[in-house]
Simulated scan of single mutants.
Amino acid sequence: MFSISARPALVLAYFTYFGVLGIFVPYFGLFLDGRGLSSADIGLLLAIVTASRIVGPTVWALIAERSGKPLTVMRLGALLAAIGWLSSFADYGFWPLLLGFALFSFFWTAILPQLEVATFAFVNDDTRAYSRIRTAGSVGYIVLVMLGGWLFERYGSEFLPLSALLFLVLLLTSLFLLPKVSVNAELSSEPVRFSKLIKNSVLLRFMLAALLLQMSFAPFYGFFTLYSRDLGYSGTQTGLFIGLAVAAEIAAFYFAGNLMRNRSYRVLLSVCYGLTVLRWSLLATVADNVWLLCFSMLLHAGSFAIAHSCAMQFIQQFFPKKLRSRGQALYAGVIFGGGGAIGAYFSGLIWQNGKGASLAFMIAALLALSATLLALTLPGSKAGAKALQ
């Protein structure tokens, strides 16, 4: 099978993967609103769809671990996700949409954890190299967010099904360009048991903090485009706001490796989570001021990019090589699946078609504050997690 060298293939894979999310995440709420769903229905649908990401990563990680073929798992997941996405072209009401998007989300979870593990294998656990490759994902996201704002103004919310499908096809193509990687071939027979590691107090505190932070993102991911519209901003302006956040993310990812060197998880995560408290507080109170709104978007550099890079390195260091696939799956399932689902459901209830927007973001700020306090209890050195294996 034709393939290209690892680095450009990985760049293309991240670009297309997050390009799909650049269409799906910011504009999905508008799409569902255009289909006539209430904010409560949108929150419920997002919660159930996101909940499929709790089990999915672990299922796919076990398949990848036992088969020793992470590329096959990623390719199968992308193919089945594209098939599930086809349901978005039909308008038959709430339940068919729910079923189609739940299937899409479940198969979608096969991709990123394996891609992260494969990337770290290709770069020999070099965090700086990983961060720079991961930057391509942010570029893909910002390109599609900006394009999505223009498409929304021109064609309305129904631009989403075809646009996302095209990038799903490109993603599948990029995965077939990746060179073969067999993570199991590099693994040692380390005797550490997964069941023992997941009971470790450091991991539990780290996971709970990350869970609370992800819950705090729910109003932003699910309703920001609607919030921006209600505040009187145009679709193009909304795209620019989100694009500004992702531009800050790109810069942060690029320099993350250097920034994280010799700094503890406690310092990095507590600062990032603290910036998130400020970010949601600004959205709750002064989002009608365009300059302060733009400033809040720049905080995405810390609240997502550096926090995510730090989390990936924590997982890589905490879990031995043979368990990293399941470690990534645990993180993806609990944090993005569980945290996203809980946050989406309650955000939908609180939002009340825009009337509860400020309250939703203030609650998000409180969740981020709780995450900050937990992060302050983490070890003072990076060696602390690894030493507990």
Rank of each mutant, 00 (worst) to 15 (best):
L162M: 15
E158Q: 04
P161F: 02
L151P: 11
S157A: 11
F206A: 02
N184R: 15
G148A: 05
L151H: 08
L197H: 14
K199H: 08
E153P: 05
T173C: 03
L177P: 05
L203W: 00
R205I: 06
F152K: 08
L187A: 15
T173F: 00
E186V: 06
N184E: 13
P161Y: 01
F206P: 00
V181T: 13
K199S: 09
F167H: 06
G149M: 12
I198R: 00
W150D: 14
V169N: 14
S189Y: 04
Y155E: 00
E190P: 03
F194L: 15
V183R: 05
S201H: 14
L203A: 02
F152H: 09
R193L: 07
L197R: 14
I198M: 00
N200E: 02
L177G: 05
R193H: 14
L171N: 13
F194S: 11
V169Q: 11
R205G: 14
L204S: 12
E153R: 10
L160H: 10
T173H: 04
V169P: 15
L197P: 12
L172A: 11
L166G: 08
S174F: 05
S188E: 07
G148Q: 03
T173A: 04
L175G: 06
I198T: 05
S189Q: 10
L151W: 07
E190H: 10
W150N: 15
L162Y: 14
L160D: 04
S174P: 09
S195H: 01
L165V: 04
S195D: 02
L204R: 06
F152S: 05
K196M: 01
S174Y: 02
L147D: 10
G149P: 10
L168A: 12
L151D: 11
V143W: 03
Y155T: 03
G156A: 01
R205K: 14
S201W: 06
V192Y: 13
F206H: 02
F167I: 06
R154V: 07
S189P: 10
N184M: 11
L170H: 05
E153S: 13
E186D: 15
K199E: 09
A164H: 07
F159S: 04
K199W: 04
R154F: 04
S157G: 11
L147V: 14
T173W: 00
L175W: 02
L208T: 12
F206T: 01
G156N: 02
L171E: 09
F152T: 03
K196A: 05
R154Y: 03
R193W: 07
L144C: 13
S163D: 05
W150V: 15
M207A: 07
Y155D: 04
L171A: 11
I198Q: 02
L178H: 12
F194D: 13
T173M: 03
L170R: 04
N200C: 01
E186P: 07
S182M: 13
L203V: 00
R154K: 09
L171V: 12
S201M: 13
V181M: 14
S189E: 09
R193Q: 15
S182R: 09
Y155A: 07
F159H: 01
E186Y: 12
L204G: 08
S163E: 04
E190Q: 08
S163H: 03
E190K: 08
V183K: 05
P191D: 03
F159Y: 01
L203Q: 00
N200K: 02
L160R: 11
P161A: 06
L171P: 15
G148L: 00
P161R: 02
L144T: 09
E186F: 07
M207T: 08
F152Q: 10
L160I: 07
F194H: 14
E158F: 01
K196F: 00
F159W: 00
